Amino acid sequence: MTNPKSLPICFWGVCLILSLYLGAQAQPPRGPLVVSPKINADKTVTFSYLAPTAKSVELSAQFEKGPVPMTKDAQGIWSVTVGPVKPDIYPYSFRVNGVTVMDPANVAFFPNERFKASLVDVPGDTPLIHALRDVPHGSINYEYYPSMEGTTGSLVVYTPPGYDQNPSKKYPVYYLISGTTDTEETFFKVGKTNLILDNLIAEGKARSMIIVMPYGNIAARVAEQKGGSKPADPTVRDGADAVKRANDFAEDLVSNVIPYIEKSYRAIPNRENRAIGGFSRGGGQTLRAAFHNMDKFAWVCAYSSYLSPQEMDGTFSPIVNKPNQTNKQLKLLWVSVGSDDFLYKGTVEFMDYLKAKKVNFKSLITDGGHTWMNVKTYVAATTPLLFQP
């Protein structure tokens, strides 16, 4: 029997080459390189998707009114150029033979409980408020805390520039809640809240603050961690199920999240240095949590959200029946909405209701709909108002 050690080096070299060749032969063939999206100098954007055997591919983007057909080249790459597109961040996806898919050539995506769209960031000629600029930057931390029913909750936490350099300094905290089907990452990855604050702080327009971004769907998390199925979202925004879930969130926030943050971070632990805000469902959670806990929050921001007059009259009568007291307690009550938002009517009615009840508030009505483009505008408008003397 031949001793393997006695075989010549050239034999092992041939074996190595043969194994590499066979290994390469076993790999599936690689298709052509696809670059997508490609942002052109004139603000048009080219989207591409490799699908040689597909019968149809369409682009679905938030800046388009409907699906846009794409055309296939000889390599099987489907492409379309659209625009020019107004500078901002937009979700988009492809429909391949009627099936919605993400862009596999793009690592940026929209965190969501359901379908995760891809994201395209069209820069402005002058950097937008959410753009990455050459300024001092804060940090993003992922945190886990003991939550309701023995589950583990998740948070994304922004600390401002200089937080780690001055261990004796304490900061106010803004609790910021995403909308229905969004996750704790959405204000970070889509809303670019960290970059907005970095830029505003660098310009001297906003105070340095901690921003805490929790996951708003307590029922889904409990079901997931206990082996159940995610419950369907409430069908009525102010129905009993929606109100119960909002109250559960408020209980988790007050009893678990705030104590965890004030133990783990250098947070100033009083109502004058706590703000709460949210978008859509998160805005409803914001209003309910704040109005139930006026001893906890002095700054309240509702983005594309409202409470009905019936709920205000019934559940929160002290807020509206004692407006002078409310106005002294709340250093800011903010309500904003887009003119094309499907919640526009209810939000404007809420503003009119507060005005009739003599409850002070600031408001902003923008163009556009129920979008994260508007949310970034609202964050940029409200954070300079928070924690001011």
Rank of each mutant, 00 (worst) to 15 (best):
N324W: 05
L7F: 14
A202H: 09
D182Y: 10
D182A: 10
F47Y: 09
G369N: 07
A267Y: 00
K357M: 10
N321A: 04
Y353L: 08
H292T: 11
R221T: 10
T186C: 10
V375P: 05
Y144W: 00
S154F: 01
A223E: 05
F187N: 11
M294Q: 15
L253I: 04
L128D: 14
K38P: 00
L18S: 12
P123G: 01
K230F: 10
V122P: 02
F387I: 04
S19C: 14
V257L: 06
Y175C: 03
Q225N: 08
T71A: 10
D295A: 02
G13T: 13
K55E: 15
K170Y: 03
T326H: 06
V157T: 11
G98F: 11
E143I: 12
D233Y: 13
L386V: 03
A246N: 14
F249S: 03
P104R: 00
A74Y: 01
V99A: 06
F11Q: 02
E224K: 15
T181K: 05
V14M: 14
W299A: 04
H292P: 02
E311M: 15
T53N: 14
F109K: 10
Y174A: 05
A41N: 13
T347D: 12
V254Q: 08
V35S: 12
D241P: 07
P29M: 11
G216F: 00
A250E: 08
R288D: 06
F387V: 01
I129D: 13
G98I: 09
S255V: 10
S336I: 01
G283N: 02
V212F: 02
G346L: 10
D367A: 08
A206Y: 02
D238L: 12
I89V: 15
F94G: 04
K192S: 11
L7Y: 13
S118P: 01
A24G: 15
K192N: 14
L18M: 08
A250K: 05
F110K: 00
V335I: 15
A24E: 13
N247E: 15
L22T: 09
K43F: 07
N97G: 14
T286Q: 01
A117I: 08
Q165W: 01
D340P: 01
A26G: 06
F249Q: 08
T193S: 10
M102F: 00
L16I: 13
I77H: 06
L197A: 07
T44D: 12
P123T: 02
V101P: 07
S168Q: 11
T183D: 04
V222I: 15
A298P: 03
P136E: 07
V157L: 04
F115D: 11
F188D: 14
G150A: 06
D248V: 06
A51L: 08
R221M: 12
A41C: 12
Q27G: 02
A202C: 05
L354W: 07
G282N: 07
P384N: 03
I365M: 07
V80N: 08
W78N: 03
T235E: 15
M294W: 03
A223S: 13
R245S: 07
S6H: 11
V335P: 11
F63M: 13
I276V: 08
S363D: 10
V337R: 07
V300R: 00
Q285D: 15
S339Y: 04
G228D: 11
L16A: 12
F188Y: 14
G83Y: 09
S168V: 11
